[in-house]
Write a protein that binds this DNA or RNA. Structure first.
Lengths: 116, 116
DNA sequence: TTGACACATTCCCATATGGGAATATAATTC
DNA sequence: GAATTATATTCCCATATGGGAATGTGTCAA
């Protein structure tokens, strides 16, 4: 079995850094035309269109026509799914950070006065 | 340029559903041996080992030896990066949900009494 | 030493990729 | 209609994939 298609789901779609970049631009600027993305990202137009196609297939962006332009817009609710998934692990990373902090504190305490 | 390697970063690593599953199991059960994962996930042992290799390369898990077993453990701080990235878009999805709610409320208000 | 076990690695293959180049399509202007 | 502009699609290719099968490696036990 080969790697799953990038259009399989949000997780596969956002694996590509260029596509994450596109989402970030859309988040900042609202509805953006393809040509504007081409300029902003310094990519070829076909490359941008293909990435947008992937993002669209997984529901991360939506399009609307305006004259001969296509305005792409972020559909953030799909990103909430990523957020929610990662959030499951929240207590784990905060616990681990706690442990690191505790160890650091213990070390500095031990250094200040090992005779205590 | 082909697709980036799965070991490139956390985003590429978690694109694979099996690997997300593995992380979830590790989150629930702490330090887990490979053979236990094989049973739990119903995958072949080489498949599990390969996925663990990917997760390890991007720092999502760590290993420790115990006899002939290898115990794998979640390193959650790398997942925090995913969480933080997605969180950037938080206001977007909550705003969008707000707009949906507002529209729904307006509809029901209009239906209850268009004469008001 | 010889097995037996736990795990990692290698070899294989069908398949999807991202990007460039070229081309197609659609809307606008003249 | 013809030329122009904005975008999408197609064709190409080097490359990485996930899984199965087979094999390698390290550790324990007798």
């Amino acid at each position: 079995m080969p790697r799953a298609a990038t259009t399989t789901d949000v997780f596969n779609a956002i694996a590509e850094p260029r596509r994450r970049q596109i989402l970030e631009v859309l988040a900042r600027r609202g509805a953006v035309a393809v040509s504007a993305l081409v300029v902003t990202l310094g990519m070829s137009q076909p490359a941008v269109s293909k990435h947008l196609g992937v993002l669209r297939k997984v529901g991360l962006v939506s399009v609307s026509k305006q004259g001969q332009q296509r305005l792409y817009q972020l559909e953030a609710k799909e990103l909430k799914r990523v957020h929610d998934w990662a959030k499951k692990f929240e207590q784990h990373w905060s616990h681990q950070l706690d442990r690191i902090k505790q160890r650091a504190e213990r070390r500095s305490r031990d250094q200040r006065g090992s005779s205590n």
